[in-house]
Amino acid sequence: MVRMDTPPLLEVRDLQVHFKVFGGHLKVLDGVNMIVRAGEKVGLVGESGCGKTTTMKAILRILPQPPAKIVGGQVLFRGQDVLRMRPDELRQIRGRGISMIFQDPTAALNPVFTIGQQLGDVIRYSHRNGRLDARQIQLKALQSLKEVALADPERLLHSYPIQLSGGMRQRVCIAMALATQPELLIADEPGTSLDVTIQDQILRLLHNLVVERNTSIILITHTLGVVREVTDRVYVMYAGSIVESAPTKTLFANPMFPYTRGLMQSVPRLSGGGVAEGIPGRIPNYLHPPSGCRFHPRCPHVMEICRREKPPMFTVGEEHYVACYLYAC
């Protein structure tokens, strides 16, 4: 557990991202706020399409612009605003500062270069002091492949992504993201595209690696069990903003935002009850998002004020914040 008074490594302030489409602007991120402290393991949950990946890509400035446009906000990494950095400053942050594991390992690997070429370049350009020669790069590449428990790394270096299985590709992506020795690792649903046993192995491996190195991590996942096991603190996202954040134990013991409660209930349990009811309705249209609280059309406790005004964050416990008028007093 990381002490609460540790200064933040990453601080996202009021991040707003729009996507230009035919017929207007999709207001996808509507003021995202989050903090990650050094060494902290943070979970980010929310249904598909709520803007988790967009937030992460905006942090690294790798959203395709256009159509995306960062309209407002700040992304402070060690106190410096990533969104206002010059290209050379940005390159110091990418990789060595923050690196990322993508959702789909097949799409995240360049199909026409060998693993050795791609991993080799990641190692070459993220090396901190001086230049590495080809021999040193090869040794480091072999070592990173061994760390993610890949067999026969020598042969892998000469293989193309198409020659590997999904699980192997995911491990290669993890090896590449960790080869830069980042201070913060963003893991966007690692292993989602793989079968459950492999996914479990991958998550365990990832967890061990970041704990070993004391790397901070933002873990995006749909599997609440994983969140509970791995993270210190959780952010819950709904339709482009953070609606609740709390230490993991608190959140699971006492979820407060109506959406979070629904999320907890929608976990299928083997003992009793069968499949849970879930949350009725679906994520709103970003072209014309609901006024006030974006969750109000689906909320069972909706009040008059929810339709008019966007709720601010209310403090409801130690490190427990929720953006809901139910807790305003």
Binding site: R96, F102, D104, A108, T180
Partner: peptide
């Protein structure tokens, strides 16, 4: 995604 990934990795 692979271009985004290569950028993200510095």
């Amino acid at each position: 995604d692979y271009i985004a990934a290569e950028r993200a990795l510095g």
